[in-house]
Simulated assay, not measured.
Amino acid sequence: MADALLIIDMQTGLYDGPEKPFERERVLATINQLIQRARNASAPIFVARHTGPEGSPIAAGSPLWQLWHGLDVDESRDHLFNKTRPSCFLGTDLAQQLNAAQVNELVIVGMKTQFCIDTTCRVAVELGYSVILPEDGHTCMDTPAFNAQAIIEHHNATLAGAFVKRVRAAEISF
């Protein structure tokens, strides 16, 4: 059973930008189901927002920086934090918050697969956390080299075993 849920970069500027994430509605529904399961088990929920420098489209407080309105996050009880790098740990107090909550096993979901999901999974393992990656709980956009589905499948396969426990979201309990 997982100890906590970490949601990465489910922000208006990424979720509803000019390039839409692969299967975005399904991924959002999957993440919202995991939020409800974590809440029902009183497991902590951590929510990262990528924050750009002053003047950028995703500067703190800007409309595109806001969490997507369809994400079932409760700012009064969930732990929201800002990050400026692909890792949710670098320059943040996430590790301290996880340790204070006695988290050993962490479920990681959100966007973008090849950047913040991949980096955060790898760093979490380096820091001693066990990571569960729902293969159907993260997404990204097409790139010139690969379509989003191929990127997701590649990262699911690459991270599985060495870095994460790869499962379907429906199999996760808190």
Results as ranks from 00 to 15, higher is better:
residue 1 M to Y: 05
residue 4 A to G: 02
residue 4 A to E: 02
residue 9 D to H: 07
residue 12 T to Y: 06
residue 12 T to S: 03
residue 17 G to Y: 10
residue 19 E to A: 12
residue 19 E to Y: 07
residue 19 E to H: 08
residue 21 P to V: 06
residue 22 F to Q: 09
residue 22 F to A: 10
residue 26 R to E: 10
residue 26 R to G: 08
residue 30 T to Q: 04
residue 31 I to M: 04
residue 33 Q to G: 08
residue 36 Q to C: 04
residue 39 R to E: 01
residue 39 R to A: 01
residue 48 A to S: 15
residue 53 P to A: 09
residue 55 G to L: 13
residue 59 A to D: 15
residue 61 G to N: 11
residue 61 G to M: 07
residue 61 G to Q: 11
residue 62 S to D: 02
residue 63 P to M: 07
residue 65 W to D: 03
residue 65 W to C: 07
residue 67 L to W: 06
residue 67 L to C: 03
residue 73 V to S: 08
residue 73 V to Q: 10
residue 73 V to T: 14
residue 73 V to I: 12
residue 74 D to H: 14
residue 76 S to A: 15
residue 77 R to L: 03
residue 78 D to W: 05
residue 79 H to M: 03
residue 80 L to T: 04
residue 83 K to F: 07
residue 84 T to Q: 14
residue 85 R to Y: 13
residue 86 P to L: 04
residue 87 S to A: 12
residue 88 C to V: 13
residue 91 G to E: 07
residue 94 L to C: 07
residue 94 L to I: 05
residue 94 L to R: 11
residue 96 Q to A: 15
residue 98 L to D: 00
residue 98 L to Y: 01
residue 99 N to D: 13
residue 100 A to P: 03
residue 102 Q to S: 15
residue 109 V to L: 01
residue 111 M to H: 04
residue 113 T to W: 02
residue 115 F to E: 09
residue 116 C to V: 06
residue 123 V to K: 02
residue 125 V to G: 02
residue 128 G to W: 05
residue 130 S to A: 12
residue 130 S to T: 15
residue 133 L to H: 07
residue 137 G to V: 06
residue 141 M to K: 07
residue 142 D to Q: 09
residue 143 T to F: 07
residue 144 P to N: 11
residue 150 A to G: 00
residue 151 I to E: 01
residue 152 I to H: 05
residue 153 E to L: 09
residue 154 H to Y: 06
residue 158 T to V: 15
residue 160 A to S: 13
residue 160 A to I: 05
residue 160 A to Q: 09
residue 164 V to D: 02
residue 165 K to S: 14
residue 166 R to M: 08
residue 168 R to A: 02
residue 170 A to T: 13
residue 171 E to P: 03
residue 174 F to M: 00
